[in-house]
Design a protein around this nucleic acid. Structure first.
Lengths: 128, 128
DNA sequence: ATGTGTGCAAACAGTTTGCAAGCTT
DNA sequence: AAGCTTGCAAACTGTTTGCACACAT
């Protein structure tokens, strides 16, 4: 299994070329430029297969469809631009998230979402 | 508009009686005890109407359906039990979330998710 | 030649909407 | 009595699956 088709190659390239988590529609749009007639079902199937191979990491965000990126990025902090809706990885980590939990709850992990305006959208709004 | 029906009364009661954000299926299950034959469409319509009235607050969580609770709770920090999947509000706030954003990004808000085991599930697993 | 991968369309799950009947005002 | 509200079912959106054909091996 895992044959080297042009669809998978295109999706892998798109994922490698973009240094931010991408949603299924984003993956379809970006990979469709490279492979004409690419179907959304293939995008979902390829995502699933890459996830199972450990070649892709899923990023779940509040109220958003899941995004996907290369594994090994900082997975705890993300930033979403409220203007263009794009999501970016953010560095850093909290030292003691467990101190923020309700009394007597045991904390094993955490994730932090930051919201605001990304560099590009700041530049665009300043120009107007 | 906004008539005082038994369905809305039941949903309001359920929301007031539970001090944690509830999902639409949770609302249906809990309110169905009070109102027989309650339909899921009514749950969704009532949620929408209460949101518009400002009588309800929506809580979006990563990879989860939205939850709803009374407004005015601490909205930035939440805790989800990885065993029972229930969600709880958590107190506290970060002092300088903007320092965690990528360079040149402007931060206006943030949300923190904590994951682990809730008090009840800790007790249950200790008993076994 | 074998059998996985693809595109299309149907199937699904969660949410929204149209409609006729019921209930609140 | 008027018209908002409800339950049911159909419509919709995002995701998954079945199927016949294409293509990588």
């Amino acid at each position: 299994m895992n044959r080297n088709t042009k669809q998978r190659r295109a999706l892998r390239e798109v994922i490698e070329e973009n240094d931010r988590p991408l949603s299924p529609p984003e993956l379809l749009a970006l990979a469709s430029v490279k492979v004409d007639g690419l179907g959304i079902a293939t995008v979902y199937r390829t995502i699933k297969s890459l996830l199972e191979d450990g070649a892709l990491a899923q990023v779940d965000l509040p109220g958003e469809p899941p995004r996907y990126e290369l594994p090994g990025k900082s997975m705890n902090h993300h930033f979403q631009c409220e203007t263009c809706r794009k999501v970016f990885d953010a560095p850093g980590h909290l030292d003691a998230p467990q101190t923020l939990a309700p009394f007597e709850f045991s904390v094993s992990d955490y994730s932090l979402m930051l919201y605001g305006t990304c560099k590009d959208c700041l530049a665009t709004s300043a120009t107007k």
